[in-house]
Amino acid sequence: MPLPVEYSEYKWRCRRGMLELDILLNSYLDKNYKTMTREQGTAFDEILDYPDQVLLDLLMGNMQSSDQSVNMIVKRIREAVTS
């Protein structure tokens, strides 16, 4: 099944107001786009709509989502930045 959003749109939406988010989101996208499952693509699409500060809180571990697919994608993004 195709991803909900094309690479170019993901790429644009990974541009944020904070360097930390730019680095986290872009390294995840660039390392994983080709192998992303539809479920991961949908969760990524969803979190890209979050406000910067919420996204930062999630990715920095200050906050947890009640949605497990969001927590999974957060975990993968954190792994991508240090791998």
Binding site: R15, R16, G17, M18, L19, P51, D52
Partner: peptide, 11 residues
């Protein structure tokens, strides 16, 4: 060029 609340002031 980005959604207003993603402007750099947010940082």
């Amino acid at each position: 060029k980005v959604f207003p609340t993603r402007s750099h002031t947010v940082a």
